[in-house]
Computed example of a mutant assay.
Amino acid sequence: MWKHIAANGISLLIVLLIAVGGMIAWGKAQYEAPGPLAQAICLRVESGSNLRRVSEELAGRDAVKYPQILRMGADYTDRSDKLKAGSFLIEEGSSMQDIVALLTGDGQSTCGTEVVYRIGVTGQEMRVRELDPATNRFEVVTEFDPLAGAAPDLYADLRSLSDTRYRIAVAEGVTSWQVVEALKGADFLAGDVADVPPEGLLAPNSYEVEPGTLRQDLLGHMQEMQGARLAEAWDNRADGLPYDTPEEALIMASIVEKETGVPEERRQVASVFVNRLREGMRLQTDPTVIYGITNGQGVLGRGLRRSELQRATPYNTYEIDGLPPTPIANPGLASIEAALNPDSTDFLFFVADGSGGHAFAQTLAEHNDNVARWRAIEAEQETSSN
Rank of each mutant, 00 (worst) to 15 (best):
residue 2 W to Y: 11
residue 3 K to F: 12
residue 3 K to L: 13
residue 5 I to W: 12
residue 8 N to D: 07
residue 8 N to E: 10
residue 10 I to T: 12
residue 11 S to Q: 12
residue 12 L to C: 11
residue 16 L to G: 10
residue 38 A to L: 08
residue 39 Q to Y: 04
residue 41 I to V: 14
residue 41 I to S: 06
residue 42 C to I: 07
residue 43 L to C: 02
residue 46 E to H: 08
residue 47 S to F: 07
residue 50 N to C: 00
residue 56 E to S: 14
residue 59 A to W: 14
residue 60 G to C: 07
residue 63 A to W: 00
residue 64 V to F: 06
residue 72 M to R: 13
residue 73 G to M: 04
residue 75 D to E: 14
residue 80 S to Y: 06
residue 80 S to T: 15
residue 81 D to C: 01
residue 82 K to M: 08
residue 86 G to W: 00
residue 87 S to I: 03
residue 89 L to G: 10
residue 91 E to A: 15
residue 92 E to C: 08
residue 94 S to W: 04
residue 95 S to Q: 02
residue 96 M to Y: 02
residue 98 D to N: 11
residue 103 L to G: 06
residue 114 E to H: 10
residue 115 V to H: 05
residue 116 V to L: 11
residue 121 V to D: 00
residue 123 G to D: 01
residue 127 R to C: 15
residue 133 P to K: 07
residue 139 E to G: 12
residue 153 D to S: 15
residue 153 D to R: 15
residue 153 D to Y: 12
residue 155 Y to P: 02
residue 156 A to P: 00
residue 163 D to N: 10
residue 165 R to M: 09
residue 167 R to E: 14
residue 168 I to T: 02
residue 170 V to C: 00
residue 171 A to V: 05
residue 176 S to E: 04
residue 177 W to K: 09
residue 178 Q to P: 01
residue 179 V to S: 00
residue 182 A to Y: 00
residue 183 L to E: 01
residue 184 K to C: 03
residue 186 A to E: 08
residue 187 D to F: 10
residue 194 A to Y: 02
residue 194 A to P: 01
residue 200 G to K: 02
residue 200 G to N: 04
residue 204 P to G: 06
residue 205 N to K: 06
residue 207 Y to H: 06
residue 209 V to Y: 03
residue 211 P to I: 05
residue 219 L to F: 04
residue 219 L to Q: 01
residue 223 Q to R: 15
residue 224 E to W: 08
residue 224 E to A: 15
residue 234 W to I: 05
residue 234 W to Q: 08
residue 238 A to H: 08
residue 239 D to N: 13
residue 240 G to K: 00
residue 249 A to W: 07
residue 252 M to D: 02
residue 253 A to S: 04
residue 256 V to H: 03
residue 258 K to M: 11
residue 259 E to C: 08
residue 264 E to L: 13
residue 268 Q to R: 14
residue 271 S to L: 09
residue 274 V to C: 07
residue 277 L to M: 15
residue 279 E to R: 13
residue 280 G to T: 07
residue 281 M to Y: 09
residue 284 Q to W: 08
residue 289 V to Q: 09
residue 294 T to P: 07
residue 297 Q to L: 04
residue 300 L to C: 07
residue 301 G to T: 05
residue 304 L to I: 11
residue 305 R to I: 00
residue 306 R to E: 10
residue 308 E to M: 03
residue 309 L to G: 07
residue 311 R to S: 14
residue 311 R to T: 15
residue 314 P to M: 05
residue 315 Y to L: 02
residue 316 N to P: 00
residue 318 Y to T: 02
residue 322 G to I: 12
residue 323 L to S: 03
residue 328 I to Y: 01
residue 332 G to Y: 03
residue 334 A to V: 02
residue 339 A to W: 06
residue 342 P to W: 03
residue 342 P to D: 07
residue 343 D to I: 01
residue 345 T to S: 12
residue 346 D to P: 09
residue 346 D to S: 15
residue 350 F to I: 02
residue 367 H to G: 11
residue 371 V to D: 09
residue 371 V to R: 06
residue 373 R to P: 08
residue 374 W to C: 04
residue 377 I to P: 05
residue 378 E to P: 00
residue 380 E to M: 06
residue 380 E to W: 01
residue 381 Q to D: 11
residue 383 T to S: 14
residue 384 S to D: 14
residue 386 N to G: 14
residue 386 N to S: 14
